[in-house]
Nucleic acid binder design. Structure first.
Length: 422
RNA sequence: GCCCCCAUCGACUAGCGGUCCAGGUCGCGGCCCUUUCAAGGCCGUAGCACGGGUUCGAAUCCCGUUGGGGGCACCA
């Protein structure tokens, strides 16, 4: 039978990275097996907020590259079918009415178990499972009733979800057995927590896909990182692109123990992906990111500045801090200019006449200048760097000057020289 | 309280009875390179939670303890 899995988010707010990780495992499994990955919205109403959340969920999935098969479905559309099944269960004596609600009779003896693909055999004593409410007194089916039914109706073969659903599983298995359908294969993947072992939340850092996007992470890096949270192909390989992940992913190698989200490692990995991008592609991503985040900087200039920072940043969001001096005024801290007066003045003279105006000529002439003043390169170039870029940390100085242009460089050098002179 | 899950360096993990005085990656420390910051190169740091078994032999299997986590709704 062809594999069919699903992601079933409830449309409340933005897509949480933990849910994305679970979705990723579903998606990787489906693609690896040549099966289908479905998207099912577990909504209980049809408000405007729901519609917006659905849009955001889809946008986030698309950004990450997780495509789903067929149209997405809504749980709400199946409420009548759920109620019909509840009535049948009632008629068959498998359920009973209780204060206007309909409850399912769970077995009281023995146990309900399943062979979990990531945990092995799990067995829950039936006496600890209470009679599940199928339909509320207001007529709405409950999650633990609707969800397994939908899995049956959708032909879901493998239910891959977070471990917080382990305790729901025996309830759902009993429901599915009661309607005489086949029990899907279950795989409960470990949770993702913050550095303190607690549920990953805002105070740990970014948690929604939108936030990671805004922070300047690449979707391919995020996917690679997420895949490695609870899964590893061999313990050696860490950088894997989409095709390789699909090719190597198996549920059997998903670890049963929870993982902590390590933002430092994500940053490192994102840097790896950033550096490996062809320069024009890197520039392209920057232009898009800047546009999405309210910078109306000239795309041509961004493209020319991009190569100067590609090796230096780990996230696209670091670009403005690193290369902002190309796009606007600069205000050097006088403290960083102290004692740099002579070098700044000499540099001004040198830059004014250097020909051709390119990085290597500028470097040569500035080194000559430093030499003439008896200064070591690092002492000589620091005030120049601060004058030109406004910071002690910047892209390569000579390339930066070349791109900035002679006129603007001279202006900044002169301004800094007068500050340094006091 | 009850039920369930989990347990290898600070983190992510490899390891599925001998090839492990435990390997890779991030982080961290040092050195090199160097116009700053990065990147890169080299070296290093650090771990099988504890106690019992089983076995010729255990990080690997079993039991217990401890410690984490999840769940016990007419939420999803």
């Amino acid at each position: 039978m062809a594999v069919r899995v699903r992601m079933a988010p409830s449309p409340t707010g933005l897509l949480h990275i933990g849910n994305v990780r679970t979705a990723l495992f579903n998606w990787l499994y489906a693609r690896h097996e040549g099966g289908e990955f479905r998207l099912r919205i577990e909504n209980t109403d049809t408000s405007r907020e729901v519609a917006e959340a659905v849009d955001q969920i889809q946008e986030s999935l698309r950004w990450l590259g997780l495509d789903w098969d067929g149209p997405h479905t809504f749980q709400l559309d199946r409420m009548d079918d759920c109620r019909r099944v509840a009535d049948e269960l009632l008629a068959a004596g498998r359920a009973y009415e209780d204060e206007g609600a309909i409850r399912f009779r769970m077995p009281n003896e023995g146990s309900t178990g399943w062979d979990d693909v990531v945990r092995g055999r799990v067995e829950i004593p039936n006496e600890t499972i209470e009679d599940l409410v199928l339909v509320r007194s207001d007529g709405r089916p409950t999650y633990n009733f609707a969800s397994p039914l939908e899995d049956v109706w959708d032909g879901i073969t493998h239910v891959i979800r977070g471990e917080d659903h382990i305790s729901n599983t025996p309830k759902q298995i009993n429901i599915i057995e009661a309607v005489g359908a086949e029990i899907p294969v279950y795989a409960h993947v470990p949770n993702v927590s913050g550095a303190d072992g607690k549920k990953l939340s805002k105070r740990h850092g970014a948690v929604t896909v939108d936030e990671f996007r805004k922070d300047g992470y690449l979707p391919e890096a995020l996917m690679n990182f997420l895949a490695l949270l609870g899964w590893a192909p061999d313990g050696e390989t860490t950088i894997m692109r989409q095709e390789e992940l699909i090719e190597r992913f198996t549920l059997g190698r998903v670890s049963p123990s929870p993982a902590q989200f390590d933002y430092q490692k994500l940053d490192w990995m994102n840097g790896v992906y950033l550096r490996e991008l062809p320069p024009d592609e890197f520039a392209h991503r920057l232009v898009i990111w800047l546009g999405e985040n309210g910078y109306d900087w000239d795309a041509e200039l961004v493209t020319r500045a991009a190569p100067l920072v590609q090796e230096k940043i780990a996230r696209l969001a670091e670009f403005p801090g690193f290369a902002g001096f190309f796009f606007g005024e600069v205000e050097p801290d006088p403290v960083d200019l102290e004692g740099g007066g002579p070098m700044l003045e000499s540099a001004h003279t040198a830059v004014a006449s250097v020909e051709p105006f390119d990085a290597s000529s500028i470097e040569w002439v500035l080194r000559q200048t430093a030499d003439g003043l008896g200064l070591k390169p690092r002492q000589a170039f620091q005030p120049v760097r601060v004058a030109v870029t406004g910071s002690k940390v910047s892209p390569g100085l000579f390339e930066s000057i070349e791109l900035l242009g002679r006129e603007e460089t001279l202006t900044r050098l002169q301004a800094a020289a007068s500050v340094a002179a006091g």
